[in-house]
Design a binder for these strands. Structure first.
Length: 550
DNA sequence: CTGGGGAAGGGGCCC
DNA sequence: GGGGCCCCTTCCCCA
């Protein structure tokens, strides 16, 4: 007995989830475009992806091999088994697709492209026939992988390699990049990052130092993490909550999906989100092993339970089948001056939703205004065409962040001063009649304005000194390093692992600090009372207690 | 309920 | 660009 459309329905759902960013657990970076997807699906489609998905939530692809528009088609193919909905796909397009498919070891897509290219030499083959053939092959392979359950992160390299050989046998062709052995690529299993390796083709090099040569390498590794590299980062589950799907504007998920995703998914999510969340936690019963171990260790050693704030909140909502909204609430940035980052990106077609979320979460209009202060990402094509990076002050669009940054520098300080003065004057001229009349406060300097337009005008000045935007949330940073570090937290990349308890950190310093928990070292001593502390910041906090008036 | 301590997250800044 | 450190902040636990 077999339900005939089961695999197809499953893929359809997955593709819709991708369109929504729901449960997406990996981000693929292609030039300036970010694509969200499911590790399972990518790993089931390509040995190359499979080897990369084990350890990284961020994959950086070689832009010589694939560009954003081609990868979009590739991704559509992976999720649908169909060629992209291009009216008249040119041979050039198929060549680009073939290159990308070969590079990514998507053998069925490569075969399809070759078939199409060969066919075009004679006569155009029946498109539907080709698509159906591809679909049958694709469906068979994917459904097998999917029904096996979650692609085990601990699945060994031999298995991957075996399957790769099978695929290669099946499609034994002159794959230009098929020699990229997954086993070599997955050197990360022994502790090195794959992010930087992506796209290096046959020039594999296990030297860690080379890992950072390409693109964004946010995954700097701990010197010793062999014991934990195979775990799914709990952060990845948190960070890539459905609310983060704004990035999935880049996913496109083909126009037909976008047009239907709301109808289809709203029902699904309204009814089943909690169920799915529960299922997710069932699939990953040890979704947070490092922390669990840490807590166990704490209990064992009678340490206080670790307070993890936001993560705990998310964990609770997940365990109880919490709604998307509740997760968002738990994820709100708490730091001062935050530009409401987690709300500030959204699907291009989802503007209404963003408004709804803002209202639901009780933000003031001024807060939600932060949503406008982002560099345009993929998904905003309808607004700014190819120039996705927009200079806020002057509104000009640029095709890349680099071009935008170069442009931003052309705004002179003089120009800024004039603007600032004008803003100050208008601010002073406004009646000082209390917060009700000036409810829009600058997130940087706390100046208040009576309307969002004035506030926005004022805040422009701040951004020019913050030339490094986060490509995920749009938040601006003064230094590239800070932005990179910030990106790590988005992506759940915590390369520094504690050998004792498995807890992971985004910064080496944090790990050093944390290790004192295990060693019992308390190097910071209060000169007034002799109290000792593991963290200097806690000593500072403690000293305030001494100095503050009783 | 409250305040203090422990532990952790994030941003700024300097080197 | 990365490391180290500082600051502010949050959350949890416990007395």
């Amino acid at each position: 007995m077999e339900f005939p459309n089961h695999a197809r329905q499953l893929l359809l759902q997955l593709n819709q989830q991708r369109a929504k960013g729901f449960l997406c657990d990996v981000i693929i970076v292609v030039e300036n475009a970010l694509f969200r997807a499911h590790k399972n699906i990518l790993a089931a489609s390509s040995m190359y992806f499979k080897s990369l998905m084990l350890h990284d939530n961020l994959v950086n692809l070689d832009t010589d091999m694939v560009n954003p528009s081609v990868f979009r088609q590739v991704l559509d193919f992976i999720y649908t088994g169909r060629l992209p909905s291009v009216d008249q796909p040119s041979d050039k397009n198929f060549n680009a697709l073939l290159t990308a498919a070969s590079y990514l070891q998507l053998h069925d897509l490569a075969a399809l492209c070759r078939k199409r290219l060969k066919g075009s030499e004679n006569a155009l083959p029946g498109k539907s026939a080709v698509s159906n053939g591809a679909w049958e092959l694709h469906k068979k392979e994917l459904s097998t992988a999917v029904t096996q359950g979650h692609v085990s992160s601990s699945e060994d390299c031999d298995d991957a390699h075996r399957q790769g050989e099978q695929l290669n046998d099946k499609l034994s062709d002159d794959e230009p990049f098929a020699s990229s052995s997954p086993c070599v690529l997955s050197a990360g299993q022994s502790g090195s990052s794959n992010v930087g390796n992506v796209g290096r083709g046959e020039e594999e090099d296990e030297d860690d130092e080379d890992d950072q040569e390409l693109g964004l390498d946010l995954s700097k590794k701990s010197p010793s993490e062999s014991s934990v590299t195979e775990e799914i980062s709990p952060q990845s589950l948190r960070e890539e909550s459905p609310q983060s799907d704004c990035i999935s504007g880049a996913n496109s998920a083909s126009s037909e999906d976008c047009s239907t995703q709301h109808q289809d998914l709203e029902g699904v999510e309204a009814m089943d989100l909690g169920e799915q969340a529960r299922e997710q936690s069932q699939v990953l019963p040890h979704a947070d092993p490092p922390r669990q171990r840490a807590r166990q260790a704490n209990r064992k050693k009678n340490w206080p339970r670790k307070g993890r704030g936001k993560m705990d909140a998310v964990e609770q909502t997940t365990q109880t089948g919490g709604s998307e909204e509740s997760k968002v609430g738990a994820e709100q940035p708490s730091s001062r001056g935050s530009l409401s980052s987690d709300r500030s990106f959204h699907c291009g077609e989802d503007g209404e939703n963003e408004k709804e979320h803002s209202e639901e979460s009780g933000q003031s209009e001024g807060e939600s205004l932060g949503a406008n202060y982002v560099y345009r990402q993929e998904g905003f094509e309808a607004v700014v065409g190819d120039n996705l990076y927009v200079c806020i002050p002057c509104g000009k669009g640029f095709p890349s962040s680099e071009r935008l940054n170069a442009h931003v520098e052309t705004h002179t300080e003089e120009e800024l001063c004039i603007k600032e003065e004008a803003e100050d004057l208008s601010a002073r001229a406004a009646p000082a009649a209390g917060a009700e009349l000036q409810p829009f406060e600058c997130s940087v300097c706390s100046k208040s304005y009576k309307d969002p337009v004035a506030l926005r005008q004022h805040e422009k000045g701040h951004w020019l000194s913050r030339p490094f935007p986060c490509h995920i949330c749009g938040k601006m940073f003064t230094q590239r390093g800070t932005m990179t570090r910030h990106m790590r937290s988005h992506l759940g990349l915590k390369p520094f692992a504690c050998e004792e308890c498995g807890m992971r950190f985004t910064r080496q310093y944090r790990l050093t600090e944390h290790m004192r928990v295990h060693s019992g070292e308390k190097p910071y001593e209060c000169q007034l009372c002799g109290g000792k502390f593991t963290q200097q910041r806690n000593l500072v906090s403690h000293l305030r207690m001494h100095t503050s008036p009783a």
